[in-house]
Design a protein around this nucleic acid. Structure first.
Lengths: 138, 138
DNA sequence: CGAAAATCATTAGCAAGCTAATCTTAGCAA
DNA sequence: TTGCTAAGATTAGCTTGCTAATGATTTTCG
C-alpha cells in the first residue's frame, strides 16, 4: 500500500512529527522550534544571535523574535556584549537550564515511537541514506 | 561523519526541503502548503473544506484561511453547496488548473535532486521504512 | 413539532519562519 | 578625521498552522 513518492513521505512524516512534538512541548509551555534554540544553548551558552541562527539553520529575524519570546517566558536573558555594542548575547536562566531534562525526555520518547519495529541494520542504512539526501540538498 | 539521530536528520531534511521548495514556488507566486491543497483539487475538484482538510492533514481553520488566500490570488473559487448551506465547496479556476504543470516540474526537479546517487534497491528499502515510521506515528 | 446536538465554516489570537527595509555600531580607507 | 562600508540586530509585513471560541445550518430525538 505504498503509493506516495519519497518526498511525499518525508513531508508527511515531518508534519506529523512536528505536530506530535508540538503537542508534547505544550505541556511544558514551550513551542516547537524554540527547543532547537534551547538545545543549542545547552551546548553553548552565551553565543550571539547570529551564531545561534547559523547553528539552528534559520534566519536572524526568526531568532530575534524567538529569543524575545523566550525572554518573556523567563528561559533566557539577552545582554549586550561588553566590547561590541552591536552584539547581543543569549544566556540561559536557571529555568532555561531546568527544562533540559523534560525536553530530552519528550524527544527520546518520540524517537522511540518513531523507530518501533525497525531493525538495527535497517536503521543504519536509513541513516546513511538520509545523510546522503541532506548532502544532496546542500 | 554521521552524528545526528534519525529524528534530527528528518527535521533537518524537512526544513531544508521546505525552504528550497518555498523558494522555487515563489517564482510562480504561491506559498508552500498551498501546493498541497491545489494538488488535491487537481485530483478532486469541488470538494468541501472539511474534506480538503482531511486529505491534506491539517485543521479546518488552516484550510479556511488558505482557501481565502487562494481565492484572493484567483486560483480557486468558493461556492455554497446547493443542498446544504453549511457547506462551502472549493473549485479551481482556469489559472488554478494552469499552474499544475509548473508545480509538478518544481516538485520533480526537487525530488531528482534529493535522490542523487541513491540506488534503486536502497530507495526501495528506505521507502518501506519511511512507511513504517509513518504508521508508527499514527 | 420543537429543542438539543452535531456539522461546517469562520474569526480571533498565538508563534514559527521568511524577506525586505531600517537602525546602530564598528572597522577601514582616503 | 571623516566618510563609506560591513556587521549585528531589529521592525514591518506576509503566510502557514495551530487552538479556542463563535456563528450558521442541518439533523436528530423526545
Amino acid at each position: 500500500m505504498v503509493e506516495d513518492d519519497v518526498q511525499e513521505q518525508l513531508v508527511k512524516i515531518g508534519a506529523k512529527m512536528r505536530k506530535d512534538y508540538s503537542d508534547a512541548l505544550r505541556d511544558i509551555n514551550i513551542h516547537v522550534g524554540q527547543d532547537r534554540a534551547l538545545c543549542q544553548l545547552w551546548k553553548e551558552d552565551g553565543i550571539t544571535q547570529v551564531q545561534l541562527s547559523e547553528r539552528i539553520s534559520c534566519e536572524p529575524p526568526t531568532v530575534s523574535n524567538m529569543v524575545k519570546k523566550l525572554e518573556d517566558y523567563g528561559l533566557v536573558q539577552r545582554s549586550r556584549d561588553k566590547h561590541d555594542a552591536r552584539i547581543s548575547r543569549v544566556y540561559l536562566t536557571e529555568r532555561g537550564r531546568e527544562i533540559q531534562a523534560p525536553v530530552s525526555e519528550i524527544w527520546n520518547k518520540q524517537q522511540e515511537k518513531l523507530l518501533q519495529g525497525i531493525q538495527q541494520d535497517e536503521l543504519f542504512l536509513v541513516r546513511r541514506i538520509l545523510q546522503q539526501m541532506l548532502q544532496n540538498l546542500t
